[in-house]
Simulated assay, not measured.
Amino acid sequence: MNRNILLIEDNEQNRYLATFLLEKRGFRIAAAPDGPTGIAAARSRTPDLILLDIQLPLMDGYDVARELRTLPSLRAIPIIAVTSYAMPGDRERCLAAGCNGYIEKPINPETFVNEIERFLS
Rank of each mutant, 00 (worst) to 15 (best):
M1P: 11
N2V: 14
N2H: 13
N4K: 09
L6T: 03
L6G: 05
L7E: 08
L7I: 03
I8D: 03
D10L: 08
D10H: 11
E12G: 13
E12W: 07
Q13T: 14
L17T: 05
A18R: 00
A18V: 07
T19Y: 03
T19M: 00
F20V: 06
E23W: 02
K24F: 00
R25A: 11
R25N: 11
G26H: 02
G26V: 03
F27L: 01
F27V: 08
R28A: 12
I29M: 13
I29C: 07
I29A: 05
A30M: 02
A31V: 12
A32L: 10
P36W: 10
T37F: 09
T37I: 15
I39P: 03
A40S: 14
R45Y: 02
P47M: 00
P47Q: 01
D48Q: 09
L49V: 10
L49I: 12
L51Q: 02
L52C: 04
Q55W: 00
L56A: 03
D60V: 13
G61D: 00
Y62P: 00
V64W: 10
R66H: 06
E67M: 06
E67I: 11
E67T: 15
E67Y: 03
T70A: 10
S73Q: 15
S73V: 13
S73T: 15
R75P: 12
I80H: 00
T83K: 02
S84L: 12
S84T: 14
Y85R: 15
A86H: 04
A86V: 08
P88H: 05
G89D: 01
D90H: 14
D90N: 13
E92H: 05
R93K: 14
R93W: 05
L95R: 03
A96H: 10
C99W: 05
Y102K: 01
I103S: 10
E104T: 15
I107Y: 00
N108Q: 15
P109K: 12
E110Y: 14
F112T: 11
N114Q: 15
N114A: 15
E115D: 13
R118S: 10
L120T: 01
